[in-house]
Amino acid sequence: MSAIRESRPSLHRVPRASSAWRWALLAAHAAVAVAWWQLGWRFGLPLLVATHLAFLWGALRPRSAMYGPVLSHLPIDDRRVWLTIDDGPSDDTRALLDLLDAHGAKATFFLVGERAAARPDLVREIVARGHGIGNHSHGHPQARFWSLGPARMRREITQCQDTLRAITGIAPRWFRAVVGHANPFVSPLLRECGLARVAWDARAYDAVRSNPAAVVARLERDLSPGAIVLLHEGARHGRNVEMIALLLQRLHALGYATVLPEELEDGA
């Protein structure tokens, strides 16, 4: 067992202190300045735009590691997947817990701090039933998370962390960025809180799409051993429980089980 633990790379990768992105930005702008000076604005301006688009793409692409490490797939070969459920707690939470219990499945709930503070009983129940919890920001600023400055980003990440720790006595280890976006101010706070960022490799936009069969069919196309499956609860269409029920049925039919990353770190 110890040999297995030693050979498996750590899944929980907290960002290290690094200024690589700053040096890259400075180098890119220096190249733009030289091009503008030597070749004129017709070359310099497009190069400037391309440089900024590259750094913006790093912020908006959920799997991008430009601003720090991100886990998007579990390194296993057998048919197990990690179910992650965002945006709770909600009116769906207890029904989802019953559903997961009925299928012998485990999931990690990425919780919004202010919603957790309003419904601490549900947060405690998630933990009591053997599921994981993760940090999904305090207020879920969906439209502008990617552009938050350092002070607001600090409030979003640390306040959620403090809220979940106060409710459960457990400090979350995983962070799911809002809409999967990041920027240079995320990694220092994750390092401070001991958090590792998690993305996904199977999604079906179940927070906005309301057809359970279509959602599950889309997810099924992206299933593979070690897939991190992105799910939601509490969507306005009110069908998340139905969707996850259908997904659990399909997982069983396809021979898939669920796993939490902590189990892999323990050598399971």
Rank of each mutant, 00 (worst) to 15 (best):
M1L: 07
R5H: 07
S7Y: 11
L11N: 00
R13A: 09
L26C: 14
A28Q: 08
Q38K: 15
G44N: 04
L48P: 03
L53Y: 05
L53P: 07
A54Q: 06
A59H: 01
R61T: 12
L74T: 00
L74V: 05
D86C: 11
D87A: 06
D92H: 05
D101H: 10
D101L: 02
A102M: 03
H103A: 07
G104T: 06
T108G: 04
V112H: 02
L122T: 09
R124T: 12
G134F: 08
N135V: 13
H136K: 03
H136Q: 02
S137M: 08
P141Q: 09
Q142T: 12
L148Q: 13
M153H: 10
R155F: 15
T158D: 03
C160R: 01
L164H: 05
A166Q: 13
I167G: 13
A171Y: 05
P172F: 06
R176T: 06
A177D: 01
V178K: 05
E192T: 08
A196M: 09
R197C: 05
A202Y: 09
R203P: 00
A204H: 09
V215H: 05
V216E: 03
A217G: 14
E220A: 15
R221D: 14
D222C: 10
R239P: 02
L247K: 04
L251I: 05
A253G: 08
L254W: 02
E262C: 01
D266M: 04
D266C: 00
